[in-house]
Design a protein around this nucleic acid. Structure first.
Length: 447
DNA sequence: GAGTTTGAAACT
DNA sequence: CAGTTTCAAACTC
């Protein structure tokens, strides 16, 4: 929209009475001059997505979602002058970190007439550009937006909102989708919709290791999937079910990535058609141990007794509840089988910890031994003692010992004395080796 | 590592 | 909605 005249967008389907969002352009990435007004409370432009001038991020405090708006102007006087201050170098800058503890989920918003559903544009090896001629801006609400929050936060990921009187459509994506984009290695988002790229600016986003945001990765390392037939576009695929891209997975023919944006969007829609809550967490958000932490649908186990990881309740370390339809359930508080399992699990965990501690201690001792026995290491020599006991040294030592044995035999010494003589010679050999090791780095030591 | 079991998801 | 099939993870050997 023009710099001087805020553009008004009507969100007729998601907002009630206060449904006007006025967007004024941002002149500089470092100067938050863009303001979005939603029924009084204001979004403040924080800064533009470093990777693209067409993405705005909207934070709704307390919401499980964070929102991204792809802003497109329809005229030549749009804010598309982003290129004037968005250089290639800025595109490769680290994406913004906006209170990441709260950023959860995003709603990318794009021009409805150009896309039906909003997901980041696919990557291409040619490094094409994401999107439109216009600017993308990250915006955050200065105050909570109760009037829209219930609507947006209740939307399942992948939901596509039809445009209202404005020219924008909206989609809700799983949280990981955006955090992936924000927090991992850069990848290039490229347009597949034929938007021109007058500036040559690349839009990049970050995909996290293993498909997790940084914070999540620390607490919940995701296992790579091994899907073969589902293209990772069905809920069989854990990555897809969790709203994550496949990354570092072992899947074949994977479509759960930016390169298959269209198929992925269709798959998300299909899942949501079948079950609008398909992407919502199955386990309640209550703290561990609290009664509200339960499986939303309950399990249907028949043969596992709900005491194996086949059972989603057991896997989530929660008891089965009245919502479960399991047969022969043993996953309840007083179950002796469950208690036994828990004790075994605890014992196993203790063993693992002990083993880890033992390994750590051993490593430490070896390291310490290395340090103490090789004083030359600090003075530049730095070789372990055994490196001095080369094959030649060993052979020479053995010759010395044999010679001593022959001497003892020659003078007809009793066996005990002969053994003693040999041992003494061995001691002298050792002393010579040690002495030589301490004096020189020369690898060849002769007895 | 191959084969089997299991139960959720998908399909009919 | 119930029954069946498909699928990938969990599990066993």
């Amino acid at each position: 929209s023009p710099v001087t005249s805020p553009r008004t967008i009507t969100l007729s389907e998601t907002l009630s009475s206060s449904s006007k969002i006025a967007i004024s352009p941002l002149k500089s990435p470092s100067k938050p001059v863009q303001t979005v007004t939603v029924g009084g409370p204001q979004f403040k432009t924080i800064f533009p997505l470093s990777t693209s001038s067409n993405v705005q991020q909207i934070q709704v405090p307390g919401s499980r979602f964070h929102y991204v708006r792809l802003v497109t102007a329809t005229t030549g006087s749009s804010t598309g002058q982003a290129g004037s201050h968005c250089t290639n170098s800025s595109m490769t800058a680290k994406p913004m970190v906006v209170n990441t503890a709260q950023v959860r989920m995003s709603v990318p918003i794009i021009p409805a007439q150009t896309m039906k559903q909003v997901v980041p544009k696919p990557l291409t090896s040619s490094g094409q550009l994401l999107t439109t001629q216009t600017q993308q801006r990250l915006i955050m609400p200065a105050t909570p937006l109760p009037q829209i929050q219930p609507n947006l936060t209740n939307l399942p990921p992948g939901t596509v909102l039809a445009p209202g009187s404005g020219n924008m459509g909206y989609a809700v994506l799983p949280a990981h989708y955006v955090t992936q984009l924000q927090q991992s290695a850069y990848v290039t988002l490229a347009s597949s919709s034929g938007f021109p790229n007058p500036t040559g600016i690349q839009t990049q986003a970050r995909l996290p290791l293993n498909g997790l945001s940084t914070s999540d990765a620390a607490s919940r390392p995701r296992k790579p999937c091994n899907c073969n037939k589902s293209q990772c576009l069905k809920l069989y695929c854990d990555c897809f079910a969790n709203g994550e891209f496949c990354q570092n997975c072992n899947c074949t023919n994977c479509f759960n990535n930016l390169e298959h944006e269209t198929e992925r969007a269709k798959a998300i829609k299909a899942c949501l058609d079948r079950n609008p809550e398909a992407f919502k967490p199955k386990i309640g958000k209550g703290k561990e141990g609290e009664s509200d932490r339960r499986h939303s649908k309950g399990c249907n186990c028949k043969r596992s007794g709900c005491l194996k990881n086949y059972c989603e309740c057991y896997e989530a370390k929660i008891m089965c509840s009245s919502t479960c339809k399991c047969v022969g359930c043993k996953n309840f508080e007083e179950s002796p089988e469950r208690k036994t399992l828990m004790h075994l699990a605890d014992a196993a965990e203790v063993r693992v910890q002990q083993q880890t501690a033992a390994k750590t201690k051993l490593s430490s001792q070896i390291s310490d031994l290395f340090t103490r026995t090789t004083p030359s290491i600090t003075s530049g020599g730095g070789r372990m003692p055994f490196t001095f006991v080369t094959k030649e040294v060993a052979e020479a030592t053995c010759e010395c010992l044999l010679e001593q044995a022959e001497q003892a035999e020659l003078i007809q010494q009793p066996q005990a004395t002969a053994e003693r003589m040999i041992l003494e010679e061995f001691g002298r050999c050792l002393m010579r080796i040690i002495s030589s090791a301490g004096k020189t780095d020369c690898p060849s030591i002769n007895c």
